[in-house]
Amino acid sequence: MKKCPECGNPSYDGAPVCGNCGFKFPKQKVAVKRERSIFESQPEVERPPKVEKPPKMEKQKVKKPSNEPGVIDIIKEKKLIIGAILLITLIVICGIVLTGSNKNTSTPIQTGDMVVYDAGDFSFKYPKSWEQVNLTDSEHESAIFYMDENNTVIEHYNISSSATSLKDINQQRINYALDNGDAVELLETVTLDGRNGSNIILENADGNYTRYVSMFTDGELYVFKISGDSINSITSENINKVINSADIA
């Protein structure tokens, strides 16, 4: 209970005015419990001294290998190039040795009843009735062979020779034939393409016949070798026409 300060009349604590004289009681202050604000300044906490970190060591840059070839690479590359050149040169030399200097590389050209054989530096004509056959000559690997209607074999080859004259070549051929039991039936000098040539006929030990018609000029030996069972077969008109058509460029 509370008393009115004007008339002393008692009133309950929450009465806004005095019930006797009408005095307005002042509003009571409500005590608010004070709570600590999170915004109030806090006492500073002593922090440990800052430890300075040691300076970072700069990483040493590793030099990347250059793409440019070094001296050793250049030497190796040159060795490979030189090796390749030597290999190609060796192959070419082997090809020359194996084929010799025979120039019998030609594509026959047919003209009427005759076929022209032309190797550039040497040419001749032969009847189209002749058959080119696949035979071999161990001493002249690039020789070419034909067979006529009488089964006579006509061989042609040309090679480089170190001989000084056709006489020396014929002498060697005759000596070789005699050593093998062959007999010399004919040895004569002939003119072919305006040049001196030779005509040799041998009777072989087996009863067959071989004829050599040769021309020699500027270190090159051009030969027709005809093999048959009789002298008539190796001296036929067609064979003589072929030999007479020979032309040295």
Rank of each mutant, 00 (worst) to 15 (best):
E149P: 00
E141S: 14
S129R: 07
K78G: 08
G95I: 04
D118P: 02
L90T: 10
I81T: 09
T136M: 13
L87E: 05
K79I: 09
S129G: 09
E141D: 13
I85S: 07
V115T: 06
E131K: 15
K103H: 09
N104V: 15
G112M: 07
P127H: 04
I144A: 05
S129H: 07
N151T: 13
A143P: 05
L98R: 01
H140E: 12
D121R: 02
K78F: 12
A143T: 04
S123C: 06
G83E: 00
A84D: 03
T107R: 07
D148K: 00
D118S: 00
Y146V: 06
C94W: 10
Y146C: 01
I81C: 02
P127Q: 02
D118V: 07
D113S: 11
V92W: 06
Y146G: 06
E149Q: 11
I91C: 08
I93G: 00
K78L: 13
I81S: 01
L86G: 05
Y117G: 00
G95D: 01
D148H: 06
T89E: 12
V133T: 06
L90Q: 01
L80W: 07
V92F: 07
E139N: 14
D113E: 14
F145K: 00
D113R: 08
L87D: 02
E149I: 10
I93H: 03
G100K: 01
F124S: 02
I81P: 03
Y126K: 02
D148G: 02
G112D: 01
S123N: 08
L86Y: 05
G120E: 01
I81W: 03
Y117A: 12
L80R: 05
N151S: 14
L98P: 00
V97Q: 08
E141L: 14
E77H: 11
S106N: 07
S129N: 08
P108F: 06
A119D: 08
N151I: 11
F124I: 04
D121Y: 07
I109R: 06
T136F: 09
P127T: 00
E139P: 03
T99Y: 11
V133A: 06
K103P: 07
E141R: 13
H140K: 10
L80A: 08
D148C: 05
D137G: 07
I88V: 13
P127D: 08
N151K: 13
K128Q: 12
I93Y: 07
F145R: 08
A84M: 03
V133S: 06
Y146M: 13
V133I: 15
N134Q: 13
V116T: 14
K125Q: 14
S142Q: 13
W130N: 01
I109H: 04
D121M: 12
N151E: 14
S129W: 11
Q132T: 10
D148S: 01
A84K: 02
F145Q: 04
P127E: 03
Y117Q: 10
N102L: 12
T111I: 13
S142T: 13
L87V: 06
E77N: 12
L86K: 02
D118R: 02
F145C: 10
L90W: 01
Y146H: 08
S138C: 09
N104P: 03
E131L: 15
T99R: 15
N150T: 10
V116W: 09
I85P: 04
N102C: 13
V92L: 11
E77A: 15
